[in-house]
């Protein structure tokens, strides 16, 4: 069963920039998570996103579209990245979501619609 882990965090919270103290440790934690996912054989891919200030939203309304600056939902927490994993149950997916080195933020766990439903 596939689950998407959507990682959101508050951009106003400080996170280490390249070259700053703690950056290497920060990156190492994410590499370690990647490696753990791979070793468990459940990693279907994941990426970090650039900041929400770089987002563009294409809104559809009854067949026509408008284009606007910014993410589709203005929230305190911004979508920062995702992982797609393949595990047995929600408990396993929650287990991985808990292991993410997010610090302070939130991870939404969403089951992927199974393709064999169709």
């Amino acid at each position: 069963m596939k689950y998407l882990l959507l990682i959101a965090s508050d951009p106003s919270l400080p996170s280490p920039e390249p070259g700053e103290d703690g950056f290497d440790e920060y990156m190492a934690a994410w590499s370690q998570f990647d490696q753990d996912l791979n070793e468990a054989g459940v990693n279907l891919g994941g990426e970090a996103l650039q900041g929400a200030e770089t987002a563009t939203t294409v809104r559809h309304h009854q067949g026509s579209t408008t284009i606007a600056d910014g993410p589709f939902a203005e929230l305190k927490e911004h979508l920062g990245g995702y992982y797609l994993i393949d595990v047995d149950t929600l408990d396993d997916a929650i287990g991985w979501a808990r292991k993410l080195p997010v610090g302070t933020g939130a991870v939404e766990v969403r089951p992927i619609f199974p393709t064999d439903e169709f």
Partner: peptide, 11 residues
């Protein structure tokens, strides 16, 4: 059912 919450003794 959709999220596959299991009927198990959890860890």
């Amino acid at each position: 059912r959709a999220a596959n919450i299991p009927l198990v003794i959890p860890e």
